[in-house]
C-alpha cells in the first residue's frame, strides 16, 4: 500500500478536527478579544456527557450526542456569565482573563478525572466492528468520514449564520467595537452570551468526534485547546475562516512531519509551527 494517500487522508481528518476547534475558538475570540483557555475543558465535558449518557445509562446515540453538545454549550455560557462577564465589567486586562480561564481549565479537567477517573475511554460502541472505506488506496473509518462531513457542515452553518442573519451582523459589530455596538442599541451582553454558547457547543462537538475516533481522557482538554489556538493563530486570529486554513496546514505539517520523525513528536511539531508563525508572520495567513 502506498503511504502517500493515507498520509493525505490522515492530514485531512486531523485538519477537520482542528478546523472545528478553530471555528469555535475563533468565534469566541473575535467577539471578546481574549484567549479563553477554558475552551478545552468545556469541549471535553461534552465528550464525557456523551460517555455518561450512552455508555453508563445506555441511551441511544441520537439522544446522547445532541445532549452532549448542548451541555458543552451551556457550560460555556455559564462560565461566561459567572466568571468572564464579571471580569470584563471590571475592565480587567486580557492577562487577568487569560489566567482566570487557565484556572478554570485546570479545575474542570481535574473534576472530570475525579468523577470519571483519569482512564482513557472510548465512545464508539464496538472496538472492532467499524466499517472501513477505501479511498484512493488509503483507508478511512466511518467515524472519520463523519468527521470530514461535520467539519464542512459546521463551516457552512457558521458562515451562513454570520453572513446572512441579523445575529451574525451583531456579532461582527460587537467584535469590531463593543462600545459603539452598545450605543447603536445592540444588547452586547446577550450577543456575547450566545457566542459563548455556540462556540462552546462547537468545541463539544469536536471533542465528541475525537472520542468516537480515538477516545477520551480528562487531560485531553489542554491538547484540544492548544490545537484550536494554534490553528487560529496560524490562520489569522479573529478571522473565523482563516482558522480553517490554519487547521488544515497544521494537520498536514503534523502528519507529514511524523512521516520522517517518530510519532511522539507530533505536539512538538505543532508548537514549532506556532512559534515560527508568531516570529515570522504573527498576523497569520489571513489578516483580520
Amino acid at each position: 500500500m502506498d503511504i502517500l494517500p493515507q498520509l493525505i487522508l490522515n492530514s485531512l481528518i486531523a485538519g477537520s478536527i482542528y478546523a472545528i476547534l478553530a471555528l469555535g475558538f475563533n468565534l469566541i475570540f473575535s467577539t471578546v478579544n481574549f484567549f479563553d483557555l477554558s475552551y478545552g475543558a468545556v469541549a471535553v465535558i461534552g465528550a464525557y456527557a456523551v460517555f455518561y449518557f450512552s455508555k453508563l445509562l445506555g441511551w441511544p446515540l441520537f439522544v446522547a450526542v445532541p445532549l452532549g453538545v448542548l451541555i458543552s454549550g451551556t457550560i460555556g455560557f455559564l462560565l461566561y456569565t459567572s466568571v468572564y462577564r464579571r471580569l470584563r465589567m471590571r475592565r480587567s486586562s486580557n492577562t487577568v482573563l487569560l489566567v482566570a480561564s487557565l484556572g478554570v481549565l485546570t479545575a474542570l479537567q481535574a473534576l472530570l478525572a475525579i468523577f470519571f477517573s483519569s482512564q482513557f475511554q472510548t465512545l464508539s460502541a464496538t472496538s472492532s466492528g467499524e466499517r472501513l472505506f477505501s479511498l484512493f488506496s488509503g483507508s478511512i473509518t466511518e467515524t472519520q468520514v463523519i468527521i470530514l462531513l461535520t467539519a464542512v457542515a459546521v463551516l457552512l452553518g457558521l458562515a451562513f449564520v454570520l453572513k446572512l442573519t441579523l445575529f451574525g451582523k451583531a456579532v461582527k459589530a460587537v467584535g469590531d467595537d463593543e462600545e459603539v455596538a452598545k450605543i447603536v442599541g445592540i444588547n452586547t451582553d446577550k450577543i456575547i452570551g450566545k457566542v459563548f454558547f455556540i462556540g462552546s457547543a462547537i468545541a463539544g462537538l469536536a471533542a465528541i468526534l475525537v472520542g468516537f475516533d480515538t477516545g477520551i481522557e480528562p487531560i485531553m482538554g489542554l491538547p484540544l485547546l492548544l490545537k484550536g489556538v494554534i490553528a487560529s493563530i496560524v490562520g489569522g486570529i479573529g478571522n473565523v475562516y482563516g482558522g480553517v486554513a490554519g487547521a488544515f496546514l497544521l494537520g498536514f505539517v503534523e502528519n507529514f512531519g511524523i512521516w520522517k520523525i517518530s510519532g511522539e513528536w507530533k505536539d512538538a511539531i505543532a508548537f514549532a509551527v506556532l512559534i515560527l508563525f508568531l516570529v515570522f508572520r504573527p498576523q497569520g495567513i489571513f489578516k483580520k
Binding site: A100, G103, L105, T106, A107, A110, I114
Partner: peptide
C-alpha cells in the same frame, strides 16, 4: 481543583 479555583 484547589489551585485552579484559587486562580479564578
Amino acid at each position: 481543583v484547589v489551585y485552579g479555583l484559587l486562580l479564578v
